[in-house]
């Protein structure tokens, strides 16, 4: 029985990992291509949640999940064109400071527009409740969430590995100078990557709004986990981030099963261990421009 309970936690952790993945993958992509540590990534997650609530007032839940990431993605275009672009070749500490500042500005902006009190968000009643598979309990809504994440993941993988766009991006990660020498401007690709990454964060926010507290600091809450996932997974590796996100979810679930008070600390211990034995992360590739 005890073993079954543990297994249930593992499966639940995998589901949770899928949600971390949505935030972490964008963060990883933006860093891999542009070399920018985007500390404002959490802000786009928060915007995603808030904007989806605004849209849901007019269109209902379903369309808001689609429209909010699109709207926030457009915001991402401005973010890339007017801010991020200036820092691709600059000292990384500068982009760190700028995006950190932006994260704070965004949080205060949300406070100004929507107030500091958390907003109420609900899902359609049909999604509420549990599904039982044998002895395993799942939240119906989270299974839906998992399906969305799997779809997004497959789309991103196909985009990166099966299209001309993906080939340029992957080449740009490894040898931007060579790509430039071949006469390809990386800039429009970078805009696309930022829009994609930011949009995924917004999708995460919109999807999680009904089951978590929608409040101004929600971005700061998620950014730490996303970073831990990216660091554990290793930069430049699609599957590294996937593996790390699932691992973090599972380790957290198992830890809470045995020692609940240590639940939140478990992912940092995991990061510590991974960095000790694999400083580049689980599946991190050697990226010349970062060495």
């Amino acid at each position: 029985m005890q073993f079954l309970f543990l297994l249930e936690q593992v499966v639940n952790g995998l589901v949770l990992g899928g949600y971390y993945l949505l935030i972490a993958l964008g963060l990883s992509l933006i860093f891999s291509v542009g070399g920018v540590v985007n500390l404002a990534h959490g802000a786009f997650y928060a915007f995603g949640a808030y904007v989806s609530l605004e849209i849901a007032k007019h269109t209902g839940f379903g369309p808001s999940i689609v429209l909010s990431p699109v709207a926030v993605g457009l915001l991402g275009v401005l973010f890339e064109r007017f801010l991020l672009r200036r820092f691709y070749t600059a000292d990384p500490i500068l982009s760190l400071l700028v995006t950190f500042g932006l994260a704070m500005v965004a949080e205060q902006l949300i406070r100004m527009i929507w107030g500091a009190a958390p907003l109420s968000a609900s899902m359609p009643p049909g999604f509420k409740g549990q599904l039982m598979f044998g002895d395993f309990m799942f939240s119906r809504y989270r299974l839906l969430l998992l399906a969305v994440v799997a779809g997004v993941l497959a789309a991103i993988w196909l985009l990166l590995h099966k299209t001309a766009f993906g080939r340029v991006v992957r080449a740009g990660i490894q040898r931007p100078d060579m790509v430039a020498a071949l006469g390809i401007r990386l800039q429009p690709y970078m805009t696309a990557i930022v829009v994609l990454g930011v949009g995924m964060a917004a999708l995460g926010g919109a999807l999680f709004a009904p089951i978590t507290v929608v409040h101004p600091a929600m971005g700061a809450e998620i950014i730490t986990v996303a970073f831990v996932v990216v660091v554990i997974g290793g930069l430049g590796s699609f599957w590294g981030v996937v593996l790390a996100a699932l691992l973090v979810g599972v380790v957290r679930g198992i830890t809470i099963h045995f020692a609940p008070a240590a639940g939140e600390a478990s992912m940092y211990v995991l990061m510590f261990l991974v960095l000790m034995f694999r400083p580049r992360g689980l599946l991190g590739e050697r990226i010349e421009k970062f060495e």
């Binding site: 309970f5 639940n12 589901v15 507290v213 809450e221 998620i222 809470i256 099963h257 609940p260 639940g263």
Partner: peptide
């Protein structure tokens, strides 16, 4: 009686424990 850190946002592992 389980302790929950103040920054916990996901309660799903705790909910499983309650059901168990």
């Amino acid at each position: 009686d389980e302790l929950v850190a103040t920054d916990v946002t996901d309660f799903s592992p705790y909910l499983l424990k309650i059901r168990q």
